[in-house]
Simulated assay, not measured.
Amino acid sequence: MATSRPDGEARGRSANRVLAYVESRKNLTGSACGIVGLALTYTGLAGAYWPVVVAGLYGAGALIAPPERPPAPDFPDPSSRLDALRDDFGTLRAYLDEVELPPAAAGRLTELTELLAGLLAPGWVSQALATDPEGVHALSRAVHQDIPESVDTFVRTRWWTRIAPGTEPPERHLERQLALLYREAEALATALREAETRRQQTHTRYLEDRGHNG
């Protein structure tokens, strides 16, 4: 009884391999060439050696058939990743609206979230961002990890500071963290802008060269 399942799985795999070969290009091409051999047999051209002719043509057809090509992996489209990230960013903003922050930190957080919202807004900016995997990764890390971690750590540390004062105010760390995250997002926006600038300059040179050559 213990070997019934492995034996059944082995038979199933063997049947699948046989079925795959029956449907393969090699078998289909070889069969077509074999049919040509049978036609030669019926016309009398193959003579007494018709089995050899049919088998040889089948083998030749199987050899010349193009190899089977496994399907390429179907990865998610970059724009679909941005759609999911955009939804997660909405969830993050809803969480941030419930957190009470000092005015300075709140101002820095607003600047950061507005910049991220501009980068993720549907349109040509997000289309340009979708072609930059590193940029998408940086935004995903900011939304999923950096910002919620910074804010949540501040909330927890502030509670401890209130019952055990004397340490550095946690809002200073939060302000520095948000400033660093803003610089990262700003650098990404600058890189996207410079890429569009280079694209415009390249098109200008193309038109100039075309005009000179014409």
Rank of each mutant, 00 (worst) to 15 (best):
P102M: 12
A62L: 04
A138Y: 00
A55W: 09
L139I: 12
H137E: 14
A142Y: 01
E114P: 07
R108K: 10
L92P: 02
A142T: 09
S80P: 04
F89N: 00
D87C: 02
V54G: 04
R69N: 04
V52C: 03
R141K: 09
G107Y: 14
G135W: 00
R141A: 13
A55H: 07
R141E: 15
I64M: 11
A55K: 03
R93V: 13
E100D: 15
L120W: 01
P71G: 12
A130H: 02
G61C: 12
D77R: 06
A72I: 07
E114L: 15
V125N: 03
S140Y: 04
L101S: 01
E68G: 10
E111M: 11
L115F: 11
P78H: 11
L109I: 08
L45Q: 08
I64R: 02
L112T: 06
G90M: 08
P122F: 07
A48E: 14
E68Q: 12
L101N: 00
Y49L: 14
A106G: 13
A121V: 08
Y58W: 15
P103M: 07
H144R: 09
A138W: 02
L57V: 07
E134N: 12
A105W: 07
G123L: 06
F89S: 01
D88E: 15
L96C: 13
A105V: 09
L115V: 07
T91L: 09
H137V: 14
S140M: 06
A84Y: 01
P70L: 07
L92W: 03
V53G: 06
A84E: 12
V99Y: 02
L101C: 07
E68V: 10
L120C: 02
V136F: 01
A130F: 05
A106R: 15
Y95A: 10
E100H: 14
P133T: 11
A65E: 06
R69Y: 00
D74L: 10
P133M: 12
D97H: 13
L57S: 03
G135N: 02
R108C: 04
G118D: 11
V54I: 15
A128F: 04
D74W: 03
